[in-house]
Amino acid sequence: MGVIYFNNVYIAKAASVVGKLENEGPLGEYFDLFETDPYFSQDSWEQAESEMVQRVINLLLSKSKLKAKDIGLLLGGDLLNQCTATAFAAQSLPIPYLGLYGACSTIAEGIIIGGMFTESFKVNNAVAVASSHFCSSERQFRFPLEYGSLRAPVSQNTVTGAGAFLLQNTPAEVKLSSAVIGKVKENGITDANNMGAAMANAAVDTILRFFDETKENPCDYDIISTGDLGREGSEIAAELFAKCGLDLCGRLTDCGMLIYDYEKQDVNSGGSGCGCLACVSASLYFDKLLRREVKKILLIGTGALLSPKTVLQKLPIPSVAHLIGLERV
């Protein structure tokens, strides 16, 4: 399977909800909603993340002036075991639901699959959503929050944020033009602190597949943005592109690098998590498309497909990167 082209899928609306740290970051003004209480008025971190997903879906529905029963399909996922954050949010919605796990690439996976359903008129519209929460992720993948461990300089900070997109098959201002489904890559990296290095190959592979097949010029795109390689992974990706001889025309950037202020916020290599690409693309990039500041963009969702158990077993980290192309109509 090569590049997938969509003729009839549009992104009508996008919505984003973030936490306090993300709101205080350089993109603060772009996000629709933020919450200063990390518990989102709930009793546990898992419920907090679910509440955030509910808020972002409700916000998307109210922006689209649609009721939940008008939505044909809900596709979403998060980082928690068994994708509970999204499933628990979905239980209050009368929408057929597909739970996805692509780690931090989930929103791209959701948009691609949702795009397929929408394009083939199996549904008239679909909502793709993805979320991550710093506290629930720390708990699942690292240490308890109050434990005083030190972080490695290459480690990343999980974004507390959620992003949702409304896909439809009637024309809107932003079009889903193309997609590439990533192949799972493993490059020998076993260090779960350095996920940027683990995912860089997968991102480079997917982007190379796109430009090899389409023969397009990267300069024709205004933004080529990976999801959460962070500063470390993004620098590695740039060096790998230079080695392969693909000039990305200075368009390469990364949501994990944009969402935080490296000087003022203690985030080491940058942001990560399903919410990273989801909330940055649903705010900053979608806004830029709507305002005609950019015309064509490529988003590459990057996911490190590890579990705490595989890390302890010292297995190399497999990664995947899915690409989606968005265009201002």
Partner: peptide, 23 residues
């Protein structure tokens, strides 16, 4: 670049924790 070379390349460029300051 094979896997061993990649792992070495990543380890070489990785910013290390400031050992002396931390100590």
């Amino acid at each position: 670049m094979n896997k061993q070379e990649y792992v070495k390349y990543v380890e070489d460029r990785e910013k290390k924790s400031p050992v002396i300051k931390n100590s």
